[in-house]
Design a protein around this nucleic acid. Structure first.
Lengths: 199, 199, 199, 199
DNA sequence: TATGAATGAGAATTCATTCAT
DNA sequence: GATGAATGAATTCTCATTCAT
């Protein structure tokens, strides 16, 4: 009996986040009114604020959640031998996600907001640090096993891979003909040439 | 006498664009009020609308102008022999521009807005098509001269270079420790390995 | 068993009134939300309304309670000979109460609300009538005993003493340097000259 | 031509203040919506904010204006010989003003707000200091001329007269039967006995 | 009684844009 | 062209109160 309530609360909270994600992706954070989010969840306009103290907290929570998902992904990825393969697989997932226009738009929106709002910047910054740390770990371990060129500067390389990830999402917004699903091969070429031990 | 007016008009128009660029970079398009732009130019709120029919037209003009600047850059770049070097130089310029946080923020802002507003999307799309066309031209010519691996798919390669450009601007917003000026070398490594004719 | 419940109920009710008094004093009636009162009592927002049908009823009860306290005070005061002294003692108590900023603020708040809300005005009016009646009784009896100038108009005099009481509470809100505790002597001078039988 | 605009602006500003004073008196500051004030002035809801940055600034301006009016009153009062008479005249004016229920309610409202909002408290405090200073000047000069008991503590006496002023306005809100116009005589008795040189 | 989620009508602003001068 | 007052719709958030549990 005591367990049901928190569960419902969490479910409702998640419903808000999901609705907000869809809205923000389509109209942008500042173009989406809280009323629209409420309508999308099927909630009265005031009720939203029982779950989040203000609109900013909603993106905040979205950013945190995306960070956790990324972290979980890398946690699962860690337990394998082919670390270069893991990296490629990560980029495969990025391309898959970029195939969802909403996801890509939201990623862009979040980056843009991070450029302005310190509280968002802090969370995005943390997520980004964790992403790069995971990439660095992968590159280090892969280097130790001879799967990746050990002479590369690890931190800089991770940074450019991260840039590539951002860039893929950006492409979606900017080039309507860009179809991520057609780019797995070119991505492999690029990564392979860049990262593989040089002859 | 007849000449002075149009000149003054153009100057005033440009002043608006410059002020708007600064404002949009710092606060975002939708967070910037037309009143703020007016204050920045030193202009009355009504007067702005003698130069632009509405706020959207201001970003529209900014996007167009950036497109022209990119086009001019490539026009200048074309007249040389070392086309791979031209490509690297282009990326050098990108890194320089990314050193200006305002420029990077504005780029992000424009991409985000393109993801939503069809009229902005159209202009951004055109600019992007032209950028990729210029890159493709460079890659084709460089390939013909043996400066670049001729087996690469030209269009796809141009797309990934464009993604890299977007990604660099995104880095600035997302990672406060990213200093573009320290990344010229890694960029050269990445481009070199990716594009150079393979042994 | 049947007795405990009503006692608990009364205690809870009183706890609400006390918390509300503190809140109203600090933030004003309309600036205090029922949620704040609930938080101050440690009660859920819905539960408050088991004790009072609405927010207005809370001030209503506070006003009633203050009226009862004043009445009790005068009841105790009645049983003595020095009635002019009783009057002075009453003003001493007023000065003591005014030393509590919260009390003074609440008094002001109640007066202000009485100026607008008929249901509050009715209760405040009743209290005020009772206060003036008590003062009139004191003045009449004191006059009969030669402790107070018998030629004074009793009702008018009571009114001006009441005005003085209101004024003391008002001073606290308006003059941060006003320290009621330093004014017992001047109050005695004022009352003495005004009320004492003239030579 | 250049003069007309500022005049119109000032007139409009004053119209807002007048409307706001009426509204605040009747419903209280926090119970009055800015929309109501706008409607009362005959103004669109947004336009108000061209004249005042926010609602608080409106009461701020009202308080300032009342302060100026009081100051002007005392300036005019200064140039005469019968200073005790001047004091009585001041109280006559207070009773006249208290005859206007709106004026009295507004005075109370302002005191109540001063008890909470520091920015209002500062302005009200300044006005009150000036009022007491003017009273002290009057008492000092009257004392020097033998019109007032010179042994009275000037500052304390001014404070109690100020309390009486506050109290009169408070009476209006609290006692529906209080008619200030009937109290000029009792006021004279009170002041005379309190202040006149003692035999 | 007690809880706290839910409601929905406001509240104070804000803002792009228009328009009279 | 230039000014800045005016408009009025929209926005975020608040809050007294209700209600299911």
């Amino acid at each position: 009996m005591r367990k049901v309530d928190p569960e419902k609360h969490a479910a409702r909270r998640q419903a808000i986040l999901d609705a907000a994600k869809a809205c923000f992706a389509k109209k942008g954070f500042h173009q989406t009114s809280t009323a629209e989010i409420c309508a999308a969840v099927g909630m009265s306009p005031g009720n939203l604020f029982h779950y989040f103290p203000n609109k900013q907290a909603i993106i905040g929570a979205i950013v945190d959640q995306e960070g956790e998902e990324t972290a979980a992904f890398f946690r699962d990825l860690g337990a394998r031998d082919d670390l270069y393969g893991a990296l490629v697989e990560f980029m495969d997932v990025v391309l898959d996600l970029a195939g969802d226009v909403d996801f890509a738009s939201l990623a862009l929106e979040i980056s843009a907001e991070a450029g302005r709002e310190p509280t968002i910047a802090a969370r995005v910054g943390r997520n980004d640090r964790e992403l790069r740390a995971a990439l660095e770990q992968l590159l280090t371990d892969a280097g130790a096993r001879g799967q990746v060129d050990p002479t590369l500067d690890i931190a800089d390389t991770a940074t450019w891979i991260a840039a590539l990830v951002d860039g893929v999402f950006n492409r979606v917004a900017v080039d309507p003909d860009f179809k991520p699903e057609n780019h797995h091969k070119t991505m492999r070429t690029l990564l392979g040439r860049y990262l593989r031990p040089q002859a």
